[in-house]
Design a binder for these strands. Structure first.
Length: 644
RNA sequence: GCCACUGUAGCUCAGCUGGCCAGAGCAGCUGAUUUGUAAUCAGCGGGUCGGGGGUUCGAAUCCCUCCAGUGGCUCCA
C-alpha cells in the first residue's frame, strides 16, 4: 500500500500502481470526469501514470493554470497530428502551450498554407477527437529517439533530442502520430470540445533569425463550446477597443507614410489629451521635488560614446546626421539619460544637493524594424515621461518608495485596479555579465525589495532579468478586459554615473559617486495613451477627455440660449461645443454617444425659460434637469474626485 | 529585416473563375425640414481600384516589383 497526501492534508491509502485518475474516481465521478493532470510532489504527471510511492497529489482541472497548460499542450499534438495527415512529410519544430492556447512551429516544406486551410485542419482535428484515440507515453533511449526521427527525416526533432540526456526521453503517441515530448498529456483527446485556429506567422527555428523560418500556427481549444464563444467575444471586444481604431474615430492621432512609418502625428484632440496627462504628471512630480529640464533632440556622437550607447546600439540606430563643413556627427536622441547626466555635471554637486530629481518629457527616436511597428505602442519616435534621480546609496530605498508612490497614485487616478510588480535581479551565477560592485548590487537589490515590501506590493522576483547596469522594478497592469500591459519602470543604474564620472562632495569632504535611478511611470506618452484607450475603450475620465460636454439645441430657436450657455461653461473651464446642425434631437444624441462625449446638454423651450439644462450622461439615460450652476458643480466635483 | 495575409471614395465593405461607363452604406456638400433623449427627407460631388512594370484585343481582377497595413518571429538602451 502507498500513502497519498491530498492538498487538504488528508492521507489516503491505495494499492501500489494506482493511477491519479483512479484516485480521482474514488473521490467523485465528477472530479474524474474533469481531471486533466496530476501534480505529483513538484512534477505534473499524466493521470494514467501509475504511482508506486508515497506522494503528495494535487488533481488538476481546467480551473488550474497547470490543467489548462496540459490541455493546450495536448491540443498542440492534436493539431500536429491532423496536419501530418493532411500534409504528409511536413517536419515539426516545437509546439508548446502559451498563456491562452498553443502554437506549433512547422516546416511545411513545399506545401503552401494560408488561413483558408484552417477549417480543413480544424475539421480533421475534430475527427481525431471523435476517434477517441488513447495517448500513450513511451520511454525511449536516446538512440531509439534519434533513429525514429532520422527515419522520419525531421532534423528539428533530431536537434532537440541531441540536447537531451539519455534515459530522460519520452515519446507520446496518439494514433499514427508520434512526438518527442516530455509531457504530460491528457489520456485521450475527448475532452477537447471546441477548436479554433487563430493565426499564422513566421517564426525562426529556435528564435534565431539566421536559421530557417518555420510556419507557426496559433490556436486555442476549450473543453466547452461556450468557452470558445466567450473567448471569441473577448477578441471582438479587444478589436472594438483597439487604440488604432478608437484613435482614428476620436481624432486623436494619425499616421502618414509621407511623414514616415512609426512616426505618430498627434491631432488637436489627441495633443490636448496628451498635454493634460503631462501636466497631471508634472504637478505630481513637482510635489515630489522634481525639477523639469529640457534637452535637444540630437546629441553629438561623443555623448553616446561616453554613455556607451554608441558602442551597443550605434549600428542599429538611425544613421548619424553630419554637419556640412566640419563633418561632426550627431545622433537623433535615443535616450534622455546622457543629456541629463550632463545637466548633473554642469556644476559641482554636494551631498546637500542630493537627491537631485531631473524630469524631462523627452522625445526620443529609435530605429525599430519595420515589421515591429504597431500603432502607438511600437513607434520610432516617442516621448518618455522620463526622470533621473541622482542620489546616495543610503537614499536609494527612500527614493524608490517615492517613485512607487507616484506610480500607484497614477494607477489609482486612472483606474488601473489590477497590477503586478516584477523585480528583476541579477543572476548570481553570472556576475561578470553585470557592471558595478557586489556591494552596490546587494545594496540596491535590497533597497528595491525593501521598498516593494514597505509599499505592500504584490511582487514577482525574477532572478537574472536585471539589466546589465542595474536591477529594476516593472509594473504590469491588467486592463478592463484582462489583458496585461507593461507600463512603468524604475531602474537602478551604476553604469552611467561611472561612465560620465559623476561625483558629489560628501560630508566627509571626499568625492563620491552618485547612484542614478531611471524611472518612467507612463513609460512613454504614446504607449500610455494607447493602453489608456484600450483600457477605457475611449471613454476617458472626465478630466482627461477631449470633449467634456456638448450642447444639443432642440432647434435653431434655442441657439442664442445655447451660445450663452456655452460661454458660461467655457468661462468655467468646461470643454464644450454646440451641435448646431438642423438635425433631430435623436440624431444629435446618437452622434454624441458615438463620439463618447460624457455629457449631453439638451436645451429647448423649457430649459431656456427656466435657465436650466437637461443632462444626459454618455452610456446612460436622461439624468433630468439641472440649473446651470449645479451642472458646473457636478462636473467640477467629478473632476476633483477623480484627481483626489 | 524575415514569414503569411491584406490594400477598391474620408470610414466600413461588395465587385476580383479577366469583358457593358467601378458599386453600396455611412461621412461630406446643397436644399427642404425646426425637430425633446441612439439614424428626417431629397439632390449632388467624390476613386488613374496603393505605385510602377508586364501578359492580353481587353486588367480592380492574372504575373513581377516597390510601397504601406495586419498577425507573428527577432530586437527593445
Amino acid at each position: 500500500m502507498i500513502h497519498i497526501t491530498l492538498p487538504d492534508g488528508s492521507i489516503k491509502k491505495f494499492e501500489k500502481g494506482i493511477t491519479s485518475y483512479e484516485i480521482a474516481l474514488s473521490i467523485s465521478k465528477g472530479l474524474a470526469r474533469n481531471v486533466l493532470a496530476a501534480q505529483i510532489n513538484k512534477e505534473i504527471w499524466d493521470i494514467n501514470r501509475p504511482l508506486f510511492e508515497n506522494v503528495n497529489l494535487r488533481l488538476l482541472t481546467w480551473n488550474d493554470a497547470e490543467g489548462k497548460d496540459v490541455f493546450w499542450h495536448t491540443s498542440a499534438h492534436l493539431m500536429a497530428s491532423a496536419i501530418e495527415i493532411l500534409y504528409p512529410g511536413v517536419k515539426f519544430g516545437i509546439g508548446p502551450s502559451i498563456e491562452t492556447g498553443f502554437y506549433y512551429d512547422i516546416d511545411f516544406m513545399d506545401y503552401s498554407i494560408s488561413s483558408d486551410d484552417f477549417k480543413k485542419i480544424e475539421d480533421k482535428m475534430a475527427e481525431l477527437v471523435a476517434a477517441k484515440q488513447q495517448i500513450k507515453r513511451v520511454e525511449v533511449s536516446k538512440q531509439e529517439a534519434l533513429d525514429y526521427f532520422t527515419k522520419k527525416n525531421d532534423e528539428y526533432k533530431i536537434e532537440l533530442i541531441q540536447d537531451l540526456e539519455d534515459g530522460d526521453i519520452t515519446f507520446y503517441q496518439s494514433g499514427d502520430f508520434v512526438d518527442l515530448c516530455r509531457g504530460p498529456h491528457l489520456p485521450d483527446m475527448s475532452a477537447i470540445k471546441a477548436i479554433k485556429l487563430l493565426s499564422l506567422a513566421g517564426a525562426y527555428w529556435r528564435g534565431d533569425e539566421k536559421r530557417k523560418q518555420l510556419t507557426r500556427i496559433y490556436a486555442v481549444t476549450f473543453p466547452k463550446k461556450k468557452e470558445l464563444d466567450e473567448y471569441l467575444l473577448l477578441l471582438e471586444e479587444a478589436k472594438k477597443r483597439d487604440h488604432r481604431k478608437v484613435g482614428r474615430e476620436l481624432e486623436l492621432f494619425t499616421f502618414s507614410p509621407r511623414v514616415g512609418i512609426g512616426l505618430p502625428i498627434w491631432l488637436p484632440k489627441g495633443a490636448a489629451l496628451r498635454e493634460r496627462l503631462e501636466n497631471f504628471l508634472k504637478k505630481v512630480q513637482k510635489e515630489y521635488g522634481y525639477q523639469q529640464v529640457i534637452s535637444p533632440h540630437i546629441g553629438n556622437v561623443e555623448l553616446y560614446k561616453t554613455s556607451g550607447h554608441y558602442q551597443k546600439y550605434g549600428q542599429d540606430s538611425f544613421r548619424p546626421i553630419t554637419t556640412p563643413q566640419e563633418g561632426e556627427e550627431f545622433f537623433l536622441k535615443p535616450m534622455n539619460c546622457p543629456h541629463n547626466c550632463e545637466i548633473y555635471s554642469s556644476k559641482p554637486r554636494s551631498y546637500k544637493d542630493l537627491p537631485l530629481r531631473l524630469a524631462e518629457f523627452g522625445t526620443v527616436y529609435r530605429y525599430e524594424q519595420s515589421g515591429e511597428l504597431h500603432g502607438l505602442t511600437r513607434v520610432r519616435g516617442f516621448t518618455q515621461d522620463d526622470a533621473h534621480i541622482f542620489c546616495t546609496p543610503e537614499q536609494l530605498e527612500d527614493e524608490f518608495c517615492k517613485v512607487i508612490d507616484i506610480v500607484l497614485y497614477i494607477f489609482k487616478t486612472l483606474d488601473f485596479k489590477d497590477y503586478t510588480v516584477q523585480i528583476s535581479l541579477r543572476d548570481p551565477d553570472n556576475k561578470e555579465k553585470y557592471i558595478g560592485s557586489d556591494e552596490n548590487w546587494e545594496k540596491s537589490e535590497n533597497a528595491i525589495v525593501q521598498a516593494a515590501k514597505q509599499r505592500n506590493l504584490d511582487t514577482v522576483v525574477e532572478v537574472g532579468e536585471a539589466a546589465f547596469y542595474g536591477p529594476k522594478l516593472d509594473f504590469m497592469v491588467k486592463d478592463a478586459i484582462g489583458r496585461k500591459w507593461q507600463l512603468g519602470t524604475i531602474q537602478v543604474d551604476y553604469n552611467l554615473p561611472e561612465r560620465f564620472e559623476l561625483e558629489y562632495i560628501g560630508s566627509d569632504n571626499q568625492k563620491h559617486r552618485p547612484i542614478m535611478i531611471h524611472r518612467a511611470p507612463f513609460g512613454s506618452m504614446e504607449r500610455f495613451v494607447a493602453v489608456l484607450i484600450e483600457h477605457t475603450g475611449g471613454n476617458f475620465p472626465l478630466w482627461l477627455t477631449p470633449d467634456q460636454a456638448i450642447i444639443l439645441p432642440i432647434s435653431d430657436k434655442y441657439m442664442d440660449y445655447a451660445q450663452s450657455l456655452m460661454q458660461t461653461l467655457d468661462k468655467n473651464d468646461i470643454r464644450v461645443s454646440i451641435d448646431d446642425r438642423s438635425e433631430k434631437t435623436g440624431r444629435k444624441i446618437r452622434d454624441a454617444e458615438l463620439r463618447k462625449i460624457p455629457y449631453m446638454l439638451i436645451v429647448g423651450e423649457k430649459e431656456e425659460n427656466k435657465h436650466t439644462v437637461s443632462v444626459r450622461q454618455h452610456g446612460m439615460k436622461d439624468l433630468g434637469t439641472m440649473s446651470i450652476p449645479s451642472f458646473i458643480e457636478h462636473i467640477n466635483n467629478e473632476v476633483t474626485n477623480s484627481l483626489a
